[in-house]
Computed example of a mutant assay.
Amino acid sequence: MKNKFAKAALTLVIAIGATAFTPVDKEEKKVDVTTSKITWKGYKVTGSHEGVISLKEGSLIFEGDKLTGGEFVVDMTSLTSTDLEGDSRSKLDGHLKSDDFFGVETHPTSKLIITKVKASGKNAYKVTGDLTIKGKTHPVTFDLSVYGNKATGALKIDRSKYDVRYGSGSFFDNLGDKTIYDEFDLVVDLNF
């Protein structure tokens, strides 16, 4: 009887131990690029401009219900302003796509690869990733919230790190009220 009990207890301990050390499977959740949205806002001495840009593809990686990674490709050719209309809008959109800014003919996509995720609260994460714009890659850190099949985040990007120089006080002197600030905002609303 003692022998049977000991074998049963040992089997139970081994089963619990194996379960405790069994890795959780990673699950890749594809982002719905048709319903997800990225808005941008750029600032200058005399005001600001805002618009949208589309995701080409993207996914988030989860282990259980915890975010652990992800990767996104942005379609730079979709860069559009939403605060202007007509010729003014066409002119700004064309200038933003030109080599003065994002050079979309040569660099039609930008990319973000999440390299580190740290939980910062319930459904909240501090995310670090490698952002590539115009072929230049630099780390960015931002907050991301995940609720069900939605994720939202806000990033502040320093364009001067990516060789986006036009109107930048970091590269040119005496711009006065024509100065365009280096930092611009991205707000990301993802559905997956």
Rank of each mutant, 00 (worst) to 15 (best):
T152I: 04
Y162K: 15
N3S: 08
S36Q: 06
D173E: 14
S168Q: 06
H49A: 14
T46Q: 11
K118E: 10
L190Y: 04
V31E: 05
I180L: 11
S98R: 10
I16P: 12
N123T: 07
K2W: 05
S98I: 14
D99K: 02
K126M: 13
L10P: 00
V74F: 10
V187E: 13
V24T: 10
P139R: 15
D93N: 14
E50C: 07
S168M: 01
T34E: 09
S78V: 04
S168R: 06
L55T: 13
P108I: 12
D75Q: 07
E105M: 12
D32V: 09
F101E: 05
K2A: 11
T141G: 08
I14L: 12
L144I: 01
P23R: 15
S81F: 03
D177V: 13
I38H: 08
D75T: 05
K30Q: 14
S170F: 01
F102I: 07
A8V: 13
F192R: 13
K2M: 06
T46K: 09
P23H: 15
G94M: 08
T22Q: 06
G47P: 00
K2S: 09
L60P: 00
F172L: 04
D87N: 13
L186Y: 09
S168Y: 10
A151I: 00
K29M: 10
K156G: 02
L92A: 09
G121M: 04
F142V: 07
P23I: 06
A124C: 06
L190P: 09
